[in-house]
Amino acid sequence: MNITVSGRRWRLGDNLDTDVLFPGSFMTLTGAKADVALSGLAMLLPEIADGFRPGDAIVAGSNFGCGSSREYAAAALKDLGISVILARSFARIFFRNALNIGLPVLEIDRVDLIPDEGPLLVDLTAGTVSGADGSVATGTVLDPFLLDLLRDGGLMPRLRARMASLDTADGRGEHA
C-alpha cells in the first residue's frame, strides 16, 4: 500500500491531545468538522490556518492523539484531507480510530529523517518513508490485519462486506 505525499509536511511536537484537535464543546450531534481540527492545529502552528491543502501530511513526535477517545479528532483530520500521519508513536485509541475510519498512520522512530521538500513515498506494507533526496526512514510495519483494514477503507466497509456475505451464506437476506 503506497501513499504519495506531494503536499506540505506539518511538523508537530510530542503529546498532541484530542482536546486541541476537537474541543469538547463541539461534541454534539453535528458531527466532525474539519475546521475544528484546523483551528486547533493553528493554536500550535499559526501558518496552517491558511496554508493547509488536502493531501498534506502531519509529521509528529510521540503520543500523537492522546487524551479522550473521541473519534471526532481522527475523523476531523480525515475530513481535512490529511493524507497520512507519521509520528514517533500514537496514543492507542487514536491509532485504532484512525485505522478504523481508513486514515493512514505510521509509526516512524526517526521522524527527523523525513525531508520537508520534494515528494514522499510512504510504503505502508514495508513501513518505510522515502524522500526524493534518497533518504529512507523506517517505521513499525502495521500488523497484516491492520493493513487489510486500511485496504478495506476502514471497519464499516469491512463489516458491511462481512454482513453481506453472511446474508448470502445463510440464504435469508436478513439476520436472525
Binding site: S68, S69, R70, I93, I101, L155, M156, L159
Partner: peptide, 28 residues
C-alpha cells in the same frame, strides 16, 4: 467509547476505551 473506561481495571476487568466506529462493530 470513553478513554476512562480503564477505571474498571480496579475491579479486575480488562477494560479499555475504543472509538465510535469500533463500538458500532461491537454492537453488531
Amino acid at each position: 467509547t470513553d478513554s476512562h473506561t480503564c477505571t474498571a481495571g480496579a475491579l479486575g476487568s480488562f477494560a479499555t476505551g475504543i472509538g465510535g466506529t469500533e463500538m458500532a462493530g461491537v454492537l453488531a
